[in-house]
Design a protein around this nucleic acid. Structure first.
Lengths: 236, 236
DNA sequence: ATTTTTGTTAATGTAAGGTTAAAAGCTATA
DNA sequence: TATAGCTTTTAACCTTACATTAACAAAAAT
């Protein structure tokens, strides 16, 4: 077998620590690009295609969170790990809002980092692959253009979708006729899973159902405790 | 929300360390059964269904390797992690021969353990799904889709099943025409075996019988004191 | 005959989901 | 910086879905 080497963008301003970490990761079969600050990090990010970003939070010019936000604007998928100088709850929260997949307090055990990297990359690999690039869907009489965020019924009028509406419907469409687990939507779209985000999602389901009412063959079913299922009934 | 809690069997004779570790794992959303020695460990293993076993190697009466061997005889799948007092190559090898999935030298970083657990459980999950988890069954004129939790009769309308209904019917289907022991359903589905859960199960049997009435060739028979048997009569 | 086990229906309590509306966040633009 | 126009979250209230327990009848075992 032999998966191809995974590519990591490491943004770390401390030259000693940065080089050591880079070498360590390379020894563990990752291809590592090391940027010395946020600016450089973003440049390198745009130029290349990474499987994971490891960002130091404390950096001159451009801190890790700001960089992460910029990266997220370009790419909503790539996993991000933050390195923080010490446990700072505020920061951690802020990090999660940007869509961090994990964070680590320096100094950290390098083996822990390695395990996290493995877990994260593997997780992403199993979700994403084919999915991540599909933006147009036929759903019964509807056409969803997920890039431009609109829904048309029988070529007629276009309904504009909000970002969340759009992502949720897209996720449902990707799993048409199959279970779309609640948890999946929450982690992929809301990047958080708690009572309120879950209720928020229910609100969006209600909105989507309203849009989809035009075609009575299309419906969103609930699977209690599991998630939702977008079905398109074939028969009359 | 969400995946169900994973169950860990922890066999560790040092009471202090054992309790601390148990608490730590429980804080991280695992359900932990703690056994204080190999004997007890094996008893608990037989009674329940675990997703992972963590075995201390050094234990009085029955060491971890011996226990692992016994466990393997009952179950070739369940992942096993060994805790060894210190790096001992010999032992490690011996462990792998028994089919250990990993080992850790005490003292170890608890976060590392956590990551290993996650990785191992996930890996198993992804192996297993396809094979051992069968989700579609034909039962006479019925089709059971156990993933989406519905039952159709002759391609007609879909009846939604509750989680318990679904799991119970699936278990019966897995043993079609054969005895499905009461105790099996109780430990696998209810994860508990007492008067009330047993009565609860009877209620579910009644519910399933109601659904299955549509096809008079399909029935659930009781084997007094033993369990139930899902039969599909072939002749007219 | 009488004690256990099972069959079945109904009642109860709790959790999850459906829906709408109000509040809070954003962003752009005046 | 105020404001208009959106998006998203939170709140509230209601309905449905589930699992358990109770209650009583029937069947099987002793």
């Amino acid at each position: 077998m032999n998966e191809q080497q995974k590519r990591i963008l490491l943004v770390e301003d401390d030259p000693n620590f940065g080089t050591v970490l880079k070498d360590y990761l390379m020894m563990n079969d990752y291809e590592v690009t090391h940027a010395k600050n946020g600016m450089e990090g973003f440049e390198k990010f745009k130029k290349d295609d990474f499987d994971l970003c490891i960002l130091d939070v404390m950096m001159p010019y451009k801190d890790g969170f700001t960089l992460a936000k910029e990266i997220r604007e370009k790419n909503t998928e790539v996993p991000i790990i933050f390195l923080t100088a010490k446990a700072m709850k505020e920061d951690v929260l802020k990090g999660y809002k940007v869509g961090a997949d994990d964070y680590l307090n320096k100094p950290f055990d390098s083996e822990v980092l390695l395990m996290k990297i493995k877990a994260i990359i593997q997780r992403k690999a199993s979700d994403t692959v084919a999915d991540s690039k599909q933006f147009e869907f036929k759903i019964g009489g509807f056409d969803l253009n997920s890039k431009l965020r609109f829904l048309t019924y029988n070529g007629g009028e276009q309904v504009k979708l909000s970002p969340k509406e759009n992502e949720l419907l897209r996720l449902l469409a990707l799993h048409e006729n199959d279970l779309m687990p609640r948890e999946l939507a929450l982690t992929k779209i809301w990047r958080d899973d708690n009572y309120f985000t879950s209720r928020s999602m229910d609100v969006y389901i209600a909105k989507l159902r309203k849009y989809l009412k035009l075609d009575e063959k299309v419906e969103i079913l609930n699977i209690h405790g599991e998630g939702f299922r977008l079905v398109v009934n074939t028969e009359a």
